[in-house]
Write a protein that binds this DNA or RNA. Sequence first.
DNA 1: GTCTATAGGAAGATAGAC
DNA 2: GTCTATCTTCCTATAGAC
Lengths: 203, 203
Amino acid sequence: MARKTGSHSDITGPKVREAAIRLFTAHGYAAVSMRQIAAEVGVQAGALYLYTPNKQTLLFNLLLEQMQGAVEAMKAADLTGPAEAQLEQFVRAHLRYHLGGESGSFIPYTELRNLTPANYEKVEVMRRVYEAALEEIVMAGARAGAFAVEDSKLTTLVLISILNGVLAWYRPGGRVKLDTVEAHYVDIIRKSLRPALMQVPAE
Amino acid sequence: MARKTGSHSDITGPKVREAAIRLFTAHGYAAVSMRQIAAEVGVQAGALYLYTPNKQTLLFNLLLEQMQGAVEAMKAADLTGPAEAQLEQFVRAHLRYHLGGESGSFIPYTELRNLTPANYEKVEVMRRVYEAALEEIVMAGARAGAFAVEDSKLTTLVLISILNGVLAWYRPGGRVKLDTVEAHYVDIIRKSLRPALMQVPAE
DNA sequence: GTCTATAGGAAGATAGAC
DNA sequence: GTCTATCTTCCTATAGAC
């Protein structure tokens, strides 16, 4: 394909995306200026507006794609079999999606507060789909007597918060490997939902 | 005591504090302007500088006092008896301190990233004291065979992140009461540390 | 103790040259 | 497609009147 000299749209575009993810993750949306993003990319601030109409839309698109990606990863997981197995697959899919990205960074959901109400609502729709899927698993396990659940909504919220809590301390390339994290969370989450000891069938 | 007319230092001071906590918690330090804080208090922006030398110091003092308060609450808790009992007291103290405040809001630790390096280090010292206390409990339980722990540092980090995750969804005055939250977290954390089923002594 | 006014700078976003 | 230059707005922080 013929291409004009100096046309770097296909290179700069992704770089803007990655720089924004990295900076928003590290410092938060409000603390990051368009000039900082531009410096990270290696262009002047004005050039960013070839790739996004404004700063707000940049954040919105990143968060929406991220949330859609989480839903897709969840749907691609093998959520079949007994509730315990489904839960394990959900936990693994969640952790791999949120921690395993090439870029190694993921914008925390707390940045949702920086979206305009209209934009927030669009992302929130996806978040509800995601959490509803988890709640289905929780309720199925409760019905089957496999999970101790008093309030499926509360249990689901707590599970999500536990899983997202990993972002508070996990560092890619750090001492703790992703496999270890996965195994650890699968283990503690499984145990945390286990019915009281007396109700566990001895085997 | 004689007091000059118009001297509201003892009223405005606390109001600045509370407004800053509320706004930093809701929107994050970087997204909040001194003008917003002033408006919340009911004064003009310039008047805030009677109570803090600058915005950074305002955040620093709030976070430092918060962290010191957590350490004091932990030390005031009855951390005696077997590791299971100590852990339960730690969990209850942590949740009550972080959720039970009169103001009903607590600046998330993610705001630590907005501190200057020198200020960050001072708060970090307190955080290490706090986490070390939890790790002591975890290790004691592991030695006694009461807890399943492969890596006490990892377990401690995960426990802290689980406990702080409550801030992601709990709303004071909401559907779920503080007592319920406490009971729920004590239950799931106790279970999550329980040794595997086969190793539990039948009784 | 609080106000108004303002200095000084940095932010988001646009215009036009190349 | 990117740069430089700039408009406009908002920010932190200070000065001086009351």
